[in-house]
Design a protein around this nucleic acid. Structure first.
Length: 371
RNA sequence: GGCCCGUUCGUCUAAGGGCUAGGACACCACCCUUUCACGGUGGUGAUACGGGUUCGAAUCCCGUACGGGCUACCA
């Protein structure tokens, strides 16, 4: 290696006077060990001979992280330095710096936290793309490529859930409690219970945390969150707030993420984009056509409109025409919703209103009958 | 390769020398539900391997294997 340690003093001096670019490195001793106590890992020690002589000041005079972090922590009188495990190998450099610069007594307490790992190794953007989950809290655009990576917030995670799930990766309070608010975390957290092993991130469990938080949230707050989530979705504004509340209450159990609401609520706001006709076409017959035509008349004549009355009227008619209601429920659902999902059909019809309900029955009855 | 850290169900974890190794996510089955979910009940499933120490080891020690991190004039 060509540096001031291997060059003669004359050569060094002449290079210096010639203004040759150079860096300043730490000179780690070639013998002895450097040991320190980590709050999570206990006693850790390194052979000083195996530690690199890291660059402290770059050729342009700017300090590297190694120098900067020690000086900065000293200036800010940091008592505890918590950082990721990836810093453990350079800890000896920092400790050596503390010894020489400010004294070991002034050194903060160290804690090297376990890493959050992807399905294979350190969590990376690649993992996110490969397995379809976010890796950043919020949308992040690569300044070089201009590519944007979707964040947890944009994916539909609540901040409370995100904090909660992160905290439980490598820590627990010793009980079976898993749902913690920020306040509860502050109260319960203790460094002693932090793990030393890295934790693999599990997207399924992450969604479960969000579902739990969604479950405990008042409808009003969910609506607020939905409004900020879907700034562009002005169809939310087209519904009056009472209807919106009813819809959210009806579909919330079916949603893991805020973004799930978009799909779950869509058929309330517009005619279904896709209709699973194939699910009912094979069993369609003249009797069913007759039933739904009669149903439209009945519904059209109804003076009040409620889920209970709609169901009653529906079943009465089915009995009159000697068709099992079970064979008619799915067709009605497909007509109103477009697929085999969603809350109770009569609740949906209730919210949809008389005009829209009849219109949807009419559209599909005509289509099925003609085929 | 070298150095450092780690290893309990597939995943997150509990049990800090002493009951049948407990819970959660996921998965499977059943119940509830004339859809899909929610919910309920039950089930499959783990102490990496080999040596020690001990009356007794997931737990302490050593070795091996495996995993991860670091090894930039990045942080």
């Amino acid at each position: 290696m060509r540096n001031s340690l291997t060059l003669s003093k004359e050569e060094v001096d002449s290079l210096l006077t010639a203004g040759t670019p150079h860096v300043i490195r730490i000179n780690m001793p070639s013998t002895g060990t450097i040991a320190f106590n980590d709050m999570i890992r206990g006693d850790v020690s390194f052979d000083m001979s195996t530690v690199d002589d890291k660059v402290l000041l770059k050729a342009d005079g700017m300090p590297t992280y190694h120098l900067a972090v020690v000086v900065d922590d000293h200036l800010m009188q940091i008592s505890h330095a918590f950082r990721g495990e990836e810093w453990l190998p350079s800890a000896p450099v920092h400790i050596r710096l503390w010894e020489k610069l400010f004294g070991r007594d002034a050194m903060p307490q160290w804690a090297h936290l376990p890493l959050i790992l992807g399905p294979s190794g350190k969590l990376s953007k690649r993992d996110g793309a490969k397995y379809g989950f976010p890796v950043f809290a919020m949308n992040w655009t690569d300044p070089k490529t201009g590519e944007t990576v979707e964040g947890f917030r944009e994916r539909g995670f609540l901040p409370e859930a995100f904090i909660n799930l992160l905290a439980m990766l490598g820590w627990n309070d010793g009980t079976e409690k898993e749902i913690f608010s920020m306040e509860e975390l502050i109260e319960a957290f203790s460094m002693e219970r932090v793990h030393s092993a890295g934790a693999k991130f599990d997207y399924e469990k992450a969604k479960w945390y969000n579902q739990e938080w969604l479950r405990g949230k008042p409808v009003q707050e969910i609506i607020l969150a939905l409004r900020s989530q879907f700034e562009s979705l002005n169809s939310l504004n087209s519904l009056n707030s009472l209807t919106l509340e009813r819809i959210v209450e009806l579909v919330r159990d079916r949603c893991h993420l805020l973004t799930d609401f978009k799909e779950q609520m869509s058929y309330f706001m517009e005619y279904p984009k896709t209709v699973d006709v194939a699910a009912i076409q094979p069993k369609w017959n003249a009797e069913k056509t007759a039933f739904f035509q009669a149903l439209m008349d009945r519904y059209g004549a109804m003076e009040s409109w409620s889920a209970l009355e709609l169901e009653e009227s529906f079943k009465t008619l089915a009995t009159e025409q000697s068709i099992k209601p079970g064979e008619l429920m799915l067709p009605l659902r497909i007509m109103l919703v477009g697929g085999k999902f969603g809350p109770g059909v009569f609740d949906i019809a209730d919210i949809l209103g008389k005009e829209e309900t009849i219109r949807r029955i009419e559209v599909l009855t005509a289509q099925l009958t003609n085929n």
